[in-house]
Design a protein around this nucleic acid. Sequence first.
DNA 1: GCAAGGTC
Length: 616
Amino acid sequence: MKIVIAEKPSVGRELAKVFGATTKKDGYIEGKGYSFTWAFGHLLQLAPPQEYGFIGWRRQHLPMLPQKFKLGIRKIKTKDGMVEDPGVRKQLDIIKKLFDEATEIIVATDAGREGELIFRYIYYFLKCKKPFKRLWISSQTDEAIKEGFRNLKPGTDYDTLFNSAHCRSESDWLVGMNATQALSISAGARSVLSLGRVQTPTLAMICSRFLEIKHFVPQLYYQLAIQLDKDGQLFKAISVINFDKKEDAEALFEKIEDVASGFPNGAKVLTVEAKPRKEPPPLLHDLSSLQQEANKRKGFTADQTLNLLQGLYESKLVTYPRTGSRYIGDDVFAGVPVLIEKLKGHQDFGKQADFLLTVPLNKRSVNAKKVTDHHAILPTGESPYQLTGDKQAIYEMVIGRMLEAFHQECVKEITKIAIEAGSVFMANGTVIRSAGWRSVFNESDDEKKDEENPSLPKVKAGEELPIVNKALLEKQTKPKAMYNEASLLKALETSGKDIEDEELRYAMKDSGLGTPATRASIIETLINREYVVREKRNLVPTNKGLAVYDVVKDQKIAQAELTGQWEKRLEEIRSGASVTDFKAEIIEYTRSITNELLQAGAGLAEKFMKEEKVDK
DNA sequence: GCAAGGTC
């Protein structure tokens, strides 16, 4: 019997289907000489410190540097503390039984670093010695799957990939566990002060933005506004110059020749510019973009959206949710018209679905090269039945986005009129000529609203117009906005882009901080640690969070660059570089950050507890 | 009591 092991049940079932294996057993599917089984993501995790004899949190244990790491079955939290997940234990037993009977093992976990690690941890934990082959496919179509099976790779081809994954895993443990204990112990706090390669730079982003806003000094500035009349149609123009001094603005204000001062035609049109602007449809959703949209539209947290989407996935209504790709391949695209067809007669989207079936579909979201392990989120075509309100909302964002993505571009006409009236004024207007994809949700542009002049009258250069009103406007510069879940998710995705070092920036170009699957839980961790609270939709640091930030802000552990450095080295390991060197560096770094935190954290708890009292 | 990674 050949055993195929996938990363998750949905993939295992899909592979079985392609082979025509249909006998459903507990935890696997059998047929045609194969058994198809699966993990549920990581079944195993690195054992916690106490399993190496580091009982209790004690200064003398630090840094904790296990000679050899142990693996343990994934734990879940219950009222009696952390216990082995019984479902995971059961599935591992099933995998063990299948591996024992196997004549050949075929690894079909996701084609990437973590997929490799998921399998290898199982394999080594079960002390399996049988050789294995690797299925390596980047598309899940029947044809790609069949081709992949005709072209299985020797398992050892991926040893270096495993090495890089293994280093990632152990390094996160070493740095995270030691830094957390070091800070918590030295701070003298009763609570846990956790630190980690991803959570701490995330906290730093929230805190530094908060402090930037807190210390922001608004600057006053002045603008002039005039209202003009073209054959009864009124429109507004604003001075091009912002005046720092009120006197300067006032001087020019006095010179504006409006009708009330006895000038029938005080303004002269200098230039008129009208340009069409084409907006391509948005890309299909990946998890992060959907979490951002759900946060903006409905105020859902990243974690809520992930859970709702997982529910839709388990009811087979949407494709795999934890994807980082906003593209689909040509094979999936071929099925899109059928998906659109299903929306005919839909209460909100039916009309647009009808329209799309009559025109060529936009292919902006179709690019097989940009599909990684999983493609963008699409509906499956199954009919939903009695969804809860929140699930329904998410589902509609998925189908609505599908219609948008394959829709036509939106064409706007942007008009700029320059006017001379003692100073130069500008009137801006935007008119939608062809709504295209924007007709799906029929909402106005959320970014910049040209609310003053949706549509400007037709005027010509040289024309003179009456000024029916004038005003001196006092304005203030504004600070950046506080992070909310949407803007934080976006910032995590792109955090690599601000890195100055070109190599580190390159190393993070496809990753950012965290991964689509983990970002929601990072936000939840910061909230559970009481580093951050939600205030309305904003993520606001607490005194505790700010105190921790103050201790670590100049340390490497608070910089996104740390992930960039690791990614660069891990990629080198994947292509064959030494593992020993990297491990030695990580151990050295663990020693130094641990020592620094043991000193720098002293008295920290008192500090933020005192501040809390002052606040009250 | 603790990381980051994956998933039901």
